[in-house]
Each structure stands twice: as structure tokens, then as C-alpha cells.
Simulated scan of single mutants.
Amino acid sequence: MGRPERPVAAADPALEKLARWLRDRRHAAGLTHRELARRSGYAFSDTTFSRATTGTRVPRLPVVEAYARACGAPVEHARGLWRAARYAAYRRRHPGADVPRPDSVYNRDELIHALRQLYHQAGAMPLDEMERRAGRHGELPHSTLHRMLAGRSLLDLQQLDAFLRVCDVTGGEWEQWCLAWRRVRRRHEVLRAGDRLTRTLRAPTAPVPRRLPAPTEPTGEAASAPPPVALAMPLFRRPRPARAAPRAPVPRA
């Protein structure tokens, strides 16, 4: 017999729901925390599993998934409860936060804001964890995610697909987000083409240099005639003035 568990001390209903669900799954399986650790291959200790159900803070997602898997409970449901608890904590810090509808997104800034809110709604897991869950190496780099969340770049369509899969967005909602991305991309390309045209029209035009007509080749007799010989002309020199004759000395009286 282990020591009795303390009552759940969660101040948030979503966190309390997660903690109670985990406890109920363990009690239904008839397992102790040590047995949970053994069933999980000691990926986490019995102390970590015990703290996950106290309700003092939201546990990490891998802990919740390992807890549910060891109890034979549905992991998808556990992941949904974890996301709800994380999003509730985020909403307490940001009361006005909400995920915009994809069909209301029309420009780049709106799309980045909407994906940022979707990231928090999905639990805001660490970026390297999202990269690992995306699958293949480089499919969703955490550095690219960081730039997108900071508003410095936009995901391409393949990266958006991986992002939505990690956030468990599927079906019609997945299609709506892809349509929003295509709409924003098309608008961005049109605006960029308009900016290039405006810069071209405003650029000062350089004067076109006049071209002298090309010399024509002589034909007929002129073509067979020898080229004219330039005559040497003597240089013209200005004559020097004549020197005055020296005066004779005047005899003295």
C-alpha cells in the first residue's frame, strides 16, 4: 500500500479535469506509480508520475502520454485534456486571446497571428518537440517555427501541413487553413509585383546616346581605287624679328 494521495489542488477547472482523469485511469487499472514507471520502461520515474496528478501545474505532454499509455487509456484523449489545460493557463495570462477563423485571414500579418494563436491553443509545446513530432528531419525546423512565431517569416505549404498535423488539425479545418495560406500567398505576390512595377515607373530614365551612322563600304571604282595619300605639310613658323644693328659710338668733342 502506497501513501494516500492528496486531494487535487488545481485552481483551474481544465487542469483539475486532467489530473482527475489520470488518477481515475490509474485506479481503474489497479496500478501504483512504481508500476506505471516500470510499464513505461522507466522513461519517467514514479515521482514524476505522482506529481502529474497533483494539479499544481500542467505536466509535460510526454509524461501525460506515457501515463495514459501505461494505464491502457486512450492517448489521444489524454493529449486533448493536456492541450485544454495548457490553453486555459495561456488564456488566464492573455484574456483577449482567441484563434481567428481561417476564412477571415487575408494578409501575411493576419495569418501569422492566427497560426500563433493556433499554436497556443494546441498546447504551445516546445519547438524542438514539435520538430520531432513532425516526422522527417527538416520537415518542420524549430528555427523556422521560431521565426514564424516571432513574425519574421511565413511557413511554406509543406511546413504548414506538418504544423497542422502536430497541432491535430485535420479534415475540413485543415483544408480551410491551406486555403487561407494560398489566399495570403497569392495576395502577397500580387502586391510585390505591383511594387516592382511602381519602382520601375518612378525610376529616372537615362538619356539614350545618339549613334553615328556606320560608315558605308565603297562600291565600284571607288572600291578599287587606292586610298588617298596624305601629303606632308610643312609646319608654318612665324618669322623671327631682325635684330637691330649696333649703334656706332659717338665721338666726343
Rank of each mutant, 00 (worst) to 15 (best):
H27D: 15
T54L: 11
P226M: 03
P204N: 07
L81C: 07
Q176V: 01
R57F: 10
N107P: 00
G123C: 06
P126W: 03
P215Y: 01
R133G: 01
V208Y: 06
D98H: 15
P213N: 04
P207V: 06
W177I: 08
L179E: 14
P234C: 00
P209G: 08
R51K: 11
P59Q: 03
R136P: 00
P62A: 02
A244Q: 15
M233D: 02
T56S: 05
V8I: 13
R165Y: 04
E5L: 12
V105R: 08
R185Q: 14
Q121F: 04
Y87W: 12
H33V: 02
A245E: 14
D161H: 05
A66W: 02
N107F: 03
L18V: 03
V169G: 02
T144Q: 14
L160N: 02
D46Y: 07
R86L: 05
L115N: 09
S40F: 02
C178L: 12
A230Q: 06
Q159C: 06
E16N: 07
E76L: 12
R238C: 03
R57M: 09
R136A: 15
R211T: 13
T32E: 06
P59T: 01
V166C: 07
G41I: 05
Q117E: 15
V75F: 06
R91S: 12
R252Y: 07
G30D: 15
P239S: 09
L154Q: 09
H120K: 04
A230I: 06
H77D: 14
G151W: 04
R116G: 13
W174Y: 15
H33Q: 10
A242G: 06
E139R: 15
G123Y: 06
A52I: 00
T200F: 12
R57P: 02
L197W: 09
R147D: 14
T47K: 11
L212Y: 06
L191K: 11
R6A: 15
E131C: 05
A52K: 01
T54S: 12
F236V: 07
R133M: 13
P102F: 08
T219C: 13
L235C: 00
G151P: 04
G80D: 13
R57D: 12
L22N: 03
A162N: 06
H142P: 01
M130W: 14
Q117N: 11
A29M: 09
A43E: 12
L145H: 03
Q117C: 11
R26A: 02
Y87M: 01
P234N: 00
G96V: 05
P4Y: 04
G171I: 03
C71N: 08
G123E: 07
P100C: 09
R93Y: 01
L201G: 08
T216D: 11
G123L: 07
A97I: 08
P100M: 07
P59D: 03
S50K: 10
A78P: 07
